[in-house]
Amino acid sequence: ELVYDFLHRIQDWPERLPHIDAVDVRQDAPGVQITAVDTSAAPDGLTRTTRGVRLCFPAAARIVYKELLTPAPIAAHTGEWSLTPDGDGVRVVCAQQVLLHDPHTPHNRQDRQDRWDPGAAGGLAETRRQVRTRLGHASTRTLHLAGWRARTAVRRLR
């Protein structure tokens, strides 16, 4: 429950995760979170904003999400946090799917916060590696801090 609570309470992430600067979350219906997240995990030091929707299933210990506004070079980004009890505690998996913009197809979004030149980054293979590394590091940091918080939580005795 403690790990799920950490992942679910996205509004607390700016105080809990070093790569999150700000979060705005609206919950119009139980289990549905509409989010805007400012992240500064990029190597260039720029803050990037993503907007998305998260569907939270506490009974199934799952949170699935879809980003609706993504930074370049990402065209689409979905993911899932899933928690499964095991003999020693809980196993947490973060699975993500990312679609990169085709560098040969112009994408003309007025709300794009940054520009992407696939040639400057060493081509599509290097861009894929950078995106995978950046998202992987952010997810790993989140999982480590969620685990630390669960292990160090003060339990109330009744």
Rank of each mutant, 00 (worst) to 15 (best):
L46T: 11
D28P: 05
I63Q: 05
P73K: 03
R54V: 07
V37Y: 07
V37M: 10
I34E: 03
A42D: 02
T39E: 01
P73Q: 05
I63F: 07
D44C: 01
G45K: 08
V32K: 10
R54I: 11
A36F: 03
K66V: 04
A61Y: 07
E67G: 01
V32S: 10
A72W: 05
A60E: 10
I63S: 00
C56D: 11
R48W: 09
R51H: 12
D38Q: 10
G31E: 05
T39K: 04
A59W: 14
L55W: 14
T35I: 12
T49P: 00
T35Q: 04
V64H: 04
P30F: 09
L55Q: 07
V32I: 13
L55R: 15
K66Q: 14
G45I: 02
Q27E: 07
V53P: 02
A72N: 03
P71Q: 04
L69D: 06
T50A: 09
P58D: 05
V32P: 03
L55T: 12
P71R: 00
P30W: 12
A41Y: 05
D38R: 09
P43Q: 00
T35R: 02
Q33F: 07
R62D: 10
Q33E: 08
D44I: 01
L46W: 14
A29T: 12
A36P: 04
T39N: 04
L46Q: 09
T35V: 13
I63E: 08
P73T: 08
D38L: 13
P30K: 14
T35H: 00
D28S: 09
T47C: 06
S40E: 00
G31S: 14
A60K: 03
L55K: 13
T49H: 08
R62Q: 15
I63N: 02
G45A: 09
V37Q: 02
V37T: 13
A29Q: 12
T70N: 02
V32T: 11
E67L: 15
P73G: 01
F57V: 15
A41I: 10
A36V: 03
C56E: 04
I34C: 05
D44W: 00
A36W: 01
L68D: 03
P73H: 01
A41Q: 11
Q27N: 10
Q27C: 08
T39H: 02
I63Y: 04
L69I: 08
D44L: 00
A29Y: 15
V64L: 12
A72D: 02
T50R: 09
Y65V: 13
Q27F: 14
P43K: 09
V64F: 09
V37H: 11
Y65E: 03
P30E: 11
P58M: 15
V37E: 00
G31F: 15
E67Q: 06
A72M: 15
A61P: 04
F57I: 14
R51C: 07
V64K: 10
C56N: 06
A61N: 10
L68N: 05
D38I: 07
D38P: 01
D44R: 00
T50D: 00
I34T: 10
A59I: 14
Q33K: 14
G31Y: 13
G45E: 04
P71A: 07
A60L: 09
P43C: 06
Y65W: 08
R54Y: 10
V53Y: 09
P58L: 11
R54C: 08
P43R: 13
Y65Q: 03
K66G: 01
